[in-house]
Write a protein that binds this DNA or RNA. Structure first.
Lengths: 255, 255
DNA sequence: CGGCGACTTGAAACGTGTCAATTAGCGTGG
DNA sequence: CCACGCTAATTGACACGTTTCAAGTCGCCG
């Protein structure tokens, strides 16, 4: 049985040691909780690891469960659905991201999460996490950066949707993802001479970009095409390169 | 010296007992911290009370201070400013609202806050609040609802800006404010027979509605006018009535 | 090979923005 | 108390960006 024949969501034998988020040390949650940053001794946290296929749900907003899931591998999208079936993506989730920081406090979700690529994720028990937190409250401060980040990204998305053009929104989305991937060592420099290009995996479909930027798939396609023609970026086979990051950034920040 | 001749921001003798947020018992923060919901004895928290004039800054995003401010009276707006001077309002702040929940964890602001009406607010010392939190960590859960609310409203705004028309955005903003005011007993029923109208203070300028909904002042005016013509709402002298809340709600939620 | 989903492209429609001219409203100062 | 002056609201003509719709291509997987 290989990855592509996975049926639905299922549990695997994947351990933390195999998880890139943990290995590259950007899975702060796991590290904090297991190493017990305070003097308190390590508290055992029950974990399961699951794998979801592309386009399958990972969490539904109606579910009430005792889970605190963290992405180990792959991309996912947190989104809300409207009555008419339209979607608005609130954020893309990358390896090391907690799916929803609010789960620290309430077992309620404010959105659903869907796998974009194949996604493997660990599920900590919410009650375990809360128990650890209660034991060493200084962890609150460490974990607070998680939801502060969530909040900041949400606010930035509000500004994008409220006040920026399609070109700016798309450019900024790409740059945001590039930065988040870079901080995870998930980008590579293609050595151009004057200006090195940055390359990254980019599994997003145009309709997903549209759902994140409040645009139409058709229009996203047109904008990406103009970026391409201007030699700002190159997209091919689920991979994206920022060719002229100076010009691209100027476009995104409108100065 | 009366209220209208206030110069700039200044301190007053206003006490908590005079603050409507406290009196009506919707200032959860003050109540929790002072009553010490847990068994721990009440911890003294240093407070000052200030008054800001309309259109004056209450907090600047560049400030770094040790404050944890709570609105007692009046309306304010949390917003981000773009390079070109444009603004995007992230949320309106009403009596009882904490200005920024992130101040619980970091002395950094992600936005600025400006007074819309005259605003009186209490400033708790951040370090005091944190000390109390450390003493009784069960307060984290009580306070968590504050920033979960913040987050949910941010997400709803994202959906509005990304996926809804001007009419829907404006109608939903009005309904959101009506609900938040109602929960504070700050609305009144104008007894219509079949459908009672809901009336509330509404100090927002059209350009402020525009800055919150990602629209243009001119267009906001046109939409409000159509609402008026359809007898859905009535606006006069800083006061708004929802005349036909059924039809208005249908408009806002597009079914 | 067939079929489906994703992407491309273009024409036309639509919603919202832009701009400018005018009016209304309100606080301030004479 | 009135007049001034600023800010907000109103309105209309027009421009622009984005959507809508439809037709067609491409590539992948079964």
């Amino acid at each position: 049985m290989n990855g592509t024949t996975l049926r639905r969501t299922r549990e695997t034998k994947l351990t933390c040691a195999m998880c890139p988020a943990y290995r590259f040390n950007f899975c702060d949650v796991g590290v904090s909780l297991k190493c017990g940053s305070s003097a308190s001794k390590s508290v055992p946290i029950y974990q399961t690891v699951r794998v979801s296929r592309p386009r399958s749900f990972i969490l539904r907003d109606v579910d009430l469960n005792d889970a605190f899931p963290i992405i180990c591998l792959g991309w996912a999208a947190a989104f809300r659905m409207l009555h008419d079936g339209q979607r608005q993506i609130l954020s893309f989730l990358l390896p090391g991201d907690v799916m929803s920081a609010t789960l620290l406090f309430e077992p309620k979700l404010t959105f659903s999460v869907e796998a974009i690529t194949q996604v493997s994720y660990r599920i900590l028990k919410r009650s375990d996490v809360r128990r650890v937190l209660r034991k060493s409250p200084d962890l609150y401060d460490k974990l607070s950066s998680i939801w502060i980040d969530e909040k900041i990204r949400a606010e930035e998305l509000i500004v994008d949707l409220g006040r920026r053009t399609a070109d700016e929104r798309i450019a900024r989305l790409i740059l945001e993802l590039a930065e988040r991937l870079a901080s995870r060592n998930m980008t590579s420099e293609e050595g151009g001479l004057g200006h090195a290009a940055v390359e990254m995996d980019f599994p997003l479909r145009q309709y997903q970009i549209a759902n994140a930027t409040g645009l139409t798939p058709a229009h996203v396609g047109k904008v990406l095409r103009t970026f391409h023609r201007q030699n700002l970026i190159r997209i091919s086979s689920r991979s994206l390169s920022i060719l002229d990051s100076v010009a691209f950034r100027r476009l995104a920040y409108r100065r």
